[in-house]
């Protein structure tokens, strides 16, 4: 327990809180900037079990703000979830970290929901957030929304049965692309949101729900704004996610999506209808023979020909780079994989 001594000396946590923390399971969806930051804080704090999910791989442009990753990870195009698991294991060998390289879809989240105590938002899109929101309500698991762009950030702690949910706050999914990270983001904005999220996480994991922050926080570190907004009035009894007769609309709707434009990345993700188990090495051989430039690691292949770049994951997902056109991306995918 010596490694946690400073945290145990912190009165609200203490020895008892530390023990509780060590028995909890946290799910972090997305290990980009926010997920990296909250995962590191909670790993160091001694959260007993952590599951991290991410569908992307590390690139050089991530290193400015995604603290878990190294230049080596970017060079190797290591999947973020796998790189995060490795790094978190180096940071704290006493905890159990499990990584999932893949899409946080309804099926996967429903499976994980059976055993997690808290869900942390590390995503970069509202599609996944609305999915998490429904999962949170259906399985009565608190989740902590967080988002940032530029020097601006926002966060809100959603507790089923107590607070309004994301659906109550936003009413509808914000239109794709409106808030894309095309204007960039600075590291401090990320760390600020993550600090709020991680503090709330520690309260939940050590059973101090009474200390949770009731307000929605929004700030701009460059323009020196800080707002704390009361949100209780938006709790909607007719809400389809958290109201009296919930239908969890996003859990059923989600299953149809096959292609997703990745925010601000000029990239489309294509998912096969059913998960596949790709023979990556055989495919690499085949494509090299066809004149493609193929690189890879145990998790993925990166294929290049002319101005096309495609990254294919073990589970059959592919990222088609250099386009925002979903129909074209699908066509490229089908041409490659049939």
């Amino acid at each position: 327990m010596e490694r946690y001594s400073r945290q145990i000396l912190f009165e609200p946590i203490g020895r008892e809180g530390q023990k509780k923390l060590s028995q909890k399971h946290v799910l972090i969806v997305g290990t980009g900037a926010l997920g990296s930051a909250t995962a590191e804080i909670l790993a160091r704090a001694g959260a007993g079990r952590m599951t991290v999910i991410d569908r992307d791989y590390v690139e050089e442009s991530n290193l400015q703000r995604q603290h878990l990753y190294s230049e080596e990870d970017a060079r190797m195009r290591w999947p973020k979830a796998a790189a995060a698991e490795k790094r978190l294991g180096e940071i704290n060998g006493l905890i159990d970290v499990n990584s999932i390289v893949g899409e946080a879809d309804a099926a996967l989240l429903e499976e994980l929901a059976q055993e997690v105590d808290l869900i942390l938002d590390g995503t970069d899109n509202f599609e996944t957030r609305f999915l998490i929101n429904d999962i949170s309500q259906k399985y009565r698991i608190p989740w902590i929304f967080g988002a940032c762009v530029g020097s601006f950030g926002m966060t809100y702690t959603i507790v089923p049965g107590k607070t309004p949910c994301l659906q109550c706050l936003l009413k509808q999914m914000p239109m794709q692309g409106l808030t894309c990270d095309t204007v960039g983001v600075i590291g401090p904005a990320v760390q600020m949101v993550a600090a709020y999220q991680a503090a709330e996480a520690l309260k939940i994991l050590t059973d101090h729900q009474e200390d949770l922050r009731p307000s929605f926080v929004s700030f701009d570190l460059w323009k020196n704004d800080h707002l704390e907004i009361k949100a209780g009035a938006l709790k909607d009894e007719s809400c389809l996610s958290c109201g009296a007769q919930p239908a969890y609309p996003f859990l059923s709707r989600e299953a149809r999506t096959k292609t997703t434009v990745l925010c601000g990345r000029d990239t489309v993700q294509v998912r096969p209808g059913k998960k596949r188990d790709m023979e990556l090495s055989a495919l690499a051989l085949q494509w090299r023979r066809a004149g493609w430039n193929v690189e890879g690691n145990p998790y993925l292949l990166s294929i290049e020909k002319e101005d096309l770049r495609i990254v294919l994951f073990q589970d059959g997902r592919a990222l088609i780079h250099g386009t925002k056109d979903e129909a074209m991306a699908k066509k490229i995918y089908q041409t490659l994989l049939g």
Partner: peptide, 10 residues
């Protein structure tokens, strides 16, 4: 009256 647009980055 404050208008706060939801942002998606993370």
């Amino acid at each position: 009256v404050a208008f706060i647009p939801p942002v998606s980055g993370g």
